[in-house]
Structures are given as structure tokens and as C-alpha cells.
Nucleic acid binder design. Structure first.
Length: 485
RNA sequence: AGCGGUAUCGUCUAGGGGUCAGGAUAGCAGAUUCUCAUUCUGUUGACACGGGUUCAAAUCCCGUUACCGCCGCCA
């Protein structure tokens, strides 16, 4: 009988949630969803110096924003808590002692200097460093001596030399010669467990059945399997994902720009687009629809179909995808998300209705929400700068168009967008017929006067949002510019 | 140095002994629109290299190269 699937994500709160961690979380989440399993969140905060509560909060918030909700974790609890590693410190020594008692581990009294020396020797002889095992069989007298010197022992795992093979869910069969590993520390001399030991104990106790993580952990895997075996515990399945690389093929880091999910959000990326994009790094849908929600992806997800190679994080496709999500998102929700990016403007000038209208007519060209800032200044304030369109407004054509525009628009209904749209069409037709002005020339004059620009959103929408007074006064400003010049 | 992993258009990928090597994105060209953009249509572009195995190799095997990762009392 197959155990119920339990997977986990175990971020360490020494920074905001990294996009790579988000992808790992996603694949774990997808696997849990697909198999009806449980998704566990564990916070690995054993490094007290680098841990900050703000990072823990950021991890929670980011994961939630991405839609990766966990079934068990520090906040929601669960049967196998605590889910914060620092609250589990009393657990590890017991198991370490058990391994010592059974002869799977031993105390090591070597100082850092001694260890350093061994490593230097190895480097000098062009050999891989493997711990010498000199503490494996120390006499009681030596031990007595070390204690007298005030030394504190670490505990090393005694690595059995053999060929270790496991079947990786994404990479296939992986083989290791454990004689190359060397006895590694499981408990530091300060009493804290090392990473490799703590994860195994935690994963074992939390009954994790499948460990899906980045391939930077591949070489930890044989060590961890050895510990499982020594403990007499069932070894979980492992699956190692390729890494996300920056465009220069190096590790994605601050110098490449955004790395944390919250950074991307600040840049104006939608979390839905982000998680969708990141899913496509290594996974591809069986149909040809790439735009999918996490739950839709889960339906179609097969862990063994994940690409096992690294992939490069390029913005081209993310930008496109973000634009797609912006275009199809609910206007009210989109408006809420866009408001923080409009801090340069006095939003009290616009009713919520008009604000949403503005978002509706300006969303199309956006690749990120941040872009909206430069596309909307003319919706605010009374006047508009004409520096960019001075020459255009100075033409006879513009004067002609604007004169007529003021005359006609005065009697337009500024609450009926559809009607304004038609009025504008008639307006263009009139000038085309009477003066042979191209429709776009006619509109350029109007647009220039009302917005100070030659390009932008739908004119009917703009006119409606601006309202009669501003439309007429700006049209007059545009017209008078010629006289002044 | 050693050990492990990976190699298909610029990028993300599909495919997998016989395919015009498919799609997406980016690029380019055209169409539509009041502008920009969107959208639509078309188009450029790839099996790392060398040996095998085979009637047939991008696909299987070996080697080389490149890249990534790991070699901590970090996680």
C-alpha cells in the first residue's frame, strides 16, 4: 500500500522568498495537489544570526500571494510540529546520541586548526579532502585530556564505504561512491545540528515521503540517505530540479535585479503571471495552452516529465505573460493593484468609477503595472505641458480642428462614452470630407491639445474621464498656443 | 583536481531510430485601428563536437568539449 504523499518546502528565513525557492515550492505543491497529498511548510531558522522575523513574514506572504497554500506549517500547525526548526532543538541530540550508541556516529575532538591543516594537506597533494577519522578510535585517556583542555566535541557520522544508488524522480538513476564523502559532522560542538542532520530528522519525523528540491542538493542526498538507513527509517523518494540561472548563466543574484518574489511584485509583476511563468521553466503543458492557473497546471502535472536541465530566467516571456494577465484581469482587482503605482498623482481627483475607466483604457500596452505611471499624467491636474507637441499645435490644421472641436464638443454629452465615440467618428469624417485631413491628423490635434501627447489611450474614454470643463479649457489652451508662439 | 548533473531555434520547451524537427516568446515583414500599443497573418532561426551500433542516429552507446552544481562544525 502506498503511503499518503507528504511533501514540504523548507525555506531558510535569511532573506525574502527567492524566486527559485518559489519554483521549488510550486513543484512540491503541484505534486501534492496532483496526488491528493499534503504540503508542509517548515521554516529552517537554525542560523540565528541571519534569521529575521521580517523574512519569515515575507516568506508567508509571498507563498500565499502565489497561491501556494500549505496544509501544515508554523502558523496553521499540524500533527508533526513544531514546524519551526529553532523550536525543535531538543529533538536532535537524542537522535545523535542514538547513532553514537549504535556505532553509526562518534565524537570528534578536532579543533578547527587541525581540520584546516588536513584540508591544506589535501589541496597540496591534489586530492579530494576526506576527514582522516583520527577521532574514530581515541582512547579514554585522550578523551579525558581533551575535556580537561576544555574542548567540546562535535559528532561525526561514520560513513560506510559502498556504492550508493538511488532513483531520482527527475534525474533517473544516480550513483555515488561513498568512500569519497568522508565522515561529516551531524552535531556541531556548540550543540546545534548541522543542516544535513536536521533535515533528515525533521523530514523523518514529519513523515515526508517525497523530497523535491534544487539540484544543488544532489550531493547532500547520499549523506542523508546514509542517515536514514542508520536510523532504520524509510528513505523518501528524491527529485532534483534544475536551477534557475540569470541570462549570463550565473546564479540569479541581486546584481541581476529582482530575485525575491516581493521584488517582482514591486516591479509591477502579477503573482499569477510570475508563478505561471516559473512553472514553464522545466515543465510544459500537454496541450498548447501556456497560460494556466496553478490548479490547472496541477491537473496536468507529472513529476517525471520535468526537464532536468537548468533554465535561464529571461524577462521577454515573463513580460509578455504579465501583459496577458493584465489584459484579462478583473478591472476592479487590477485597479486595486495599480493604485500603489500611482502615488505621484492625486487620486482624489477621480471617482472610483473614473479611476477604473482610466485603468480600463490604459491597461493594454502595459507589460508591468509600474508602466502605468508614465501613461496617465494627463488624467490629472487642470493643464497639460505642450513641449512635446508645440509644433503640431502650431499648424493651421490643428487650429482648424480645435476651433471646430470646441464649437461641437460644448454640446456633447460627457457621460455617454459610446456617444462621444460616435461624435468623434463624425468629427473625423467631417474633416476628411471637407479638408481631406487624414483621420489620424485630425485626432492628433485633439490628442495633443487634451493630453500634450501624440499617443495614448482611447480618445473617447479620455474625454469622458476629463469631463467637459477640462476638455474645453485644454482645447482652448491648445488653440491659443499658436497665438502665443 | 575530484565527484555528480546537463546539452534541440537568442530564450523556455515538444518530440525521440525513418518528422518539412513542432509550439511559445523575442526578432523581422505585412494587415487592422484615431496615435502608441493590442490583435491577426506571414517569416528568419536549433538537434554542441567526434566516434561507434544500425539499412537508417537529433534520438541508443562511448568519448570530447562547454556549462551548472557539490566538495563547511552555511543552509
Amino acid at each position: 500500500m502506498q503511503d499518503k504523499v507528504r511533501v514540504r518546502i523548507a525555506p531558510s528565513p535569511s532573506g525574502n522568498l527567492h524566486i527559485g525557492t518559489a519554483r521549488t515550492a510550486l513543484f512540491n505543491y503541484l505534486y501534492a495537489k496532483k496526488t491528493g497529498g499534503t504540503f508542509v511548510l517548515r521554516i529552517e531558522d537554525t542560523d540565528a544570526l541571519r534569521t529575521e522575523q521580517a523574512y519569515v513574514d515575507n516568506i508567508f506572504d509571498s507563498l500565499k500571494a502565489l497561491g501556494l497554500n500549505w496544509d501544515e506549517g508554523p502558523d496553521v500547525g499540524g500533527e508533526y510540529g513544531p514546524y519551526t526548526q529553532s523550536k525543535r532543538f531538543d529533538i536532535y541530540p537524542k537522535y545523535a546520541q542514538m547513532l553514537v550508541d549504535k556505532g553509526y556516529a562518534y565524537e570528534c575532538w578536532c579543533t578547527n586548526e587541525e581540520l584546516e591543516h588536513e584540508k591544506e594537506e589535501a589541496v597540496k597533494n591534489h586530492k579530494a579532502y576526506v576527514y582522516s577519522r583520527k577521532c574514530l578510535n581515541i582512547t579514554p585517556e585522550q578523551k579525558e585530556q581533551y575535556i580537561k583542555e576544555g574542548r567540546k566535541p562535535s559528532i561525526r557520522f561514520k560513513v560506510e564505504h559502498k556504492e550508493l544508488v538511488f532513483n531520482d524522480m527527475v534525474k533517473g538513476e544516480l550513483k555515488f561512491d561513498t568512500s569519497l564523502i568522508g565522515d561529516f559532522v551531524i552535531m556541531k560542538s556548540n550543540g546545534a545540528p548541522t543542516y544535513n542532520f536536521a533535515v533528515v530528522i525533521d523530514d523523518m519525523l514529519m513523515k515526508i515521503t517525497h523530497i523535491i528540491r534544487g539540484e544543488d542538493h544532489i550531493s547532500n542526498t547520499p549523506k542523508q540517505i546514509l542517515i536514514y538507513e542508520a536510523l532504520g527509517a524509510k528513505v523518501p523518494e528524491f527529485g532534483h530540479l534544475g536551477m534557475i540561472l540569470a541570462p549570463d548563466r550565473s546564479k540569479l543574484s541581486k546584481r541581476h535585479g529582482a530575485t525575491a518574489v516581493s521584488d517582482f511584485v514591486k516591479e509591477g509583476y502579477l503573482t499569477d503571471a510570475l508563478i505561471n511563468f516559473v512553472a514553464l521553466l522545466g515543465w510544459s503543458p500537454s496541450d498548447s495552452h501556456e497560460i494556466k492557473t496553478v490548479d490547472e497546471i496541477a491537473q496536468d502535472f507529472r513529476i517525471n516529465e520535468i526537464s532536468s536541465s537548468n533554465s535561464i530566467f529571461e524577462y521577454d516571456k515573463l513580460n509578455w505573460m504579465n501583459g496577458q494577465y493584465i489584459k484579462k484581469m478583473d478591472i476592479s482587482k487590477l485597479t486595486d493593484l495599480i493604485i500603489p503605482f500611482l502615488s505621484d498623482y492625486d487620486l482624489s481627483e477621480l471617482s472610483r468609477e473614473k479611476l477604473e475607466k482610466m485603468v480600463e483604457i490604459t491597461r493594454e500596452p502595459l507589460t508591468t503595472l509600474k508602466d502605468i505611471k508614465d501613461d496617465v499624467p494627463y488624467f490629472f491636474g487642470q493643464k497639460v505641458p505642450y513641449d512635446e507637441v508645440k509644433d503640431l499645435l502650431g499648424t493651421e490644421l490643428s487650429r482648424n480642428v480645435l476651433t471646430k472641436f470646441i464649437e461641437l464638443a460644448t454640446s456633447w454629452d460627457f457621460c455617454d462614452e459610446e456617444k462621444i465615440h460616435n461624435d468623434l467618428a463624425d468629427f473625423r469624417a467631417y474633416f476628411k470630407e471637407k479638408y481631406s485631413y487624414k483621420p489620424k491628423e485630425t485626432m492628433w490635434a485633439v490628442r495633443a491639445a487634451l493630453t500634450g501627447r501624440t499617443k495614448g489611450a482611447d480618445m473617447a474614454g479620455i474625454i469622458m474621464i476629463l469631463g467637459k470643463d477640462r476638455v474645453i479649457s485644454r482645447a482652448k489652451d491648445g488653440l491659443n498656443l499658436k497665438i502665443g508662439a
